[in-house]
């Protein structure tokens, strides 16, 4: 199994480290030709406008969509979640639009309002998950076919799954806890 991490901008190195801890081969993806031999893709946190522009400029978008339509699993964290969304509140920016979710960017506020918090996510087991939110987005609404894996205060949707796509508002790559990555690796395993 080989998982690619989109390496246009943002915290891609941390995702590669996390995948290595899961004993999975991980490679950086900067060009569309590199997408050919991967079984899954992670779109990291960073600035979604920057990542979107570079994705268009270097023709990665169409190829990612084609692979996703053939079942390649994708995990998007923070900016990656924004890239996966069909709708982004108040924004026309480029997105892949693979998930039926309405995302609000910088939804908790600016950096001053960024925070860390322990979450109970049953899909990851009983142990609480320390989640770091950096100028994070959250999901305002989803279609019924989207499975909600975690809500903050029973209201703000921050972790979802739809088909082979997984999206999180927070940054599992910034902590030592690799359970989100392990969850994604299991998803990829099922498609091989």
């Amino acid at each position: 199994m080989k998982i690619g991490v989109l390496a246009l901008q943002g915290a891609f190195r941390e995702h590669i480290e996390a995948l290595k801890k899961c004993k999975v081969e991980a490679i950086e993806i900067k060009k569309s030709s590199q997408l050919d031999d991967i079984d899954g893709l992670i779109i990291p946190g960073g600035e979604s406008t920057t990542i979107g522009l570079l994705m268009q400029q270097f023709n990665l978008g169409d190829k990612i969509l084609e692979k996703a339509n053939h079942g390649m699993p994708i995990l998007g964290t923070c900016a990656g979640m924004v890239m996966l969304a069909k709708d982004i509140v108040d924004s026309e920016q480029f997105r892949l639009g693979l998930m039926d979710i309405i995302v609000r960017r910088n939804a908790f506020g600016r950096q001053r309002e960024s925070f860390e918090r322990s979450l109970n996510i049953s899909a990851l087991g009983d142990e609480p998950f320390k989640a770091i939110f950096i100028r994070a987005p959250y999901i305002e609404a989803t279609s019924p076919n989207v499975e909600v894996l975690c809500k903050l205060d029973n209201e703000k949707i921050i972790f979802v799954k739809q088909g082979n796509c997984l999206a999180a508002s927070f940054h599992p790559e910034l902590t030592e806890d690799i359970r989100v990555h392990q969850y994604f690796v299991r998803l990829v395993n099922k498609t091989i």
Partner: peptide
């Protein structure tokens, strides 16, 4: 919930990496 922690401060810098 905790704000302004070292992880949160450093975290934004991590997100800026590879950027201008």
């Amino acid at each position: 919930m905790s704000q302004g922690t070292w992880a949160v401060k450093k975290g934004l810098a991590e997100m800026l990496k590879g950027g201008v």
